[in-house]
Computed example of a mutant assay.
Amino acid sequence: MVEKSSGEGHGNAEYQWNAFDSEAYFQHYYGEPHPDDDLVIRVAVDALRRASAAGNALDVVDVGTGPNLIPFFCTLPRARRLTAWEYAATNVAWLRAELENDDMRPQWRHFWRVAREAYGPGWGLPENPIPLLREKCVVTQGSVFDLPARSWDAATMFFCAESITERQDEFEAACATFARSVRPGGMLAAAFLVRSEGYVVADRPFPVLKLSPETIERVFRHHADAVDARLIGIVDREIRSGYSGFIFLTGTAR
């Protein structure tokens, strides 16, 4: 794979993030649950179950959450406190409104069931996680580039750093601040799109940077130990809007 040079492609600031149509994104990407979504949940839960001692409650940040509760479902059983770190004002408002609604959408009921099954018996997880999420979760508006350092025990990032820019240098900067947001020894878990040409939300184009596992491992080895990036869920056809699988990364913050 040929990587873009640092300054090649459109940068993050060139896109209208505060015009992002959160509901249109949700309906397109999660309106109909896909087995690939279930697979993301299972591999993320597997990583989170192994983060620190199983009985320890963690301060967790999810970076670039977007209009998506899946990251919360993956982290809730391990979280003492959960921070959603999201830039777009529309997504922040959408997330806050979603957490105020006790009547879960059918899609969330499906994804929460997948997460509960992935954790297995013994965790005492409720049928409806929304009230508990409301207690534990804080939705914070902020840029990935401005994440405070060494502030959390674990961090997750689902399809964010590669979906905010076409520039390699900005992608690497986002990965660096993500990795540094966790205290030394803490867990990092992230999923990245594969074979995407970008995405369109309500007729507005947004970027994606093409990546390989080797590229991601190289970037994270500067900031983390025990780095492992692997291709998961790769198929020979598009899943949604130009992507056909994902790369899942785990590592330990330095």
Rank of each mutant, 00 (worst) to 15 (best):
V45H: 13
L48C: 14
R50H: 11
S52V: 00
A53P: 03
N56T: 08
V60A: 14
V60Y: 14
V63K: 08
G64D: 07
P67M: 01
P67G: 00
N68L: 01
N68H: 02
I70Q: 04
I70D: 00
I70H: 02
P71N: 07
F73L: 06
C74D: 06
T75P: 07
L76S: 02
R78C: 01
A79T: 12
R80D: 12
R81Q: 14
R81G: 12
L82N: 10
Y87D: 07
A89F: 07
T90D: 02
A93F: 07
L95D: 03
E98S: 10
E100I: 09
N101H: 11
D102V: 06
M104Y: 10
R105A: 05
R105S: 11
W108E: 07
R109S: 15
R109I: 12
W112H: 02
W112S: 04
V114N: 03
E117M: 10
W123K: 06
L125R: 06
P126D: 10
N128V: 13
I130C: 03
L132Y: 11
K136S: 07
K136T: 00
C137N: 05
Q141R: 06
G142D: 06
S143L: 10
S143P: 09
D146W: 03
L147H: 14
A149S: 15
D153I: 00
A154K: 14
M157T: 15
M157F: 01
C160G: 15
A161F: 06
S163L: 08
R167V: 14
E170D: 02
E170V: 11
F171R: 13
F171H: 12
A174H: 09
T177N: 15
T177A: 10
A179S: 10
R180Y: 13
S181C: 11
S181R: 05
P184M: 05
P184R: 03
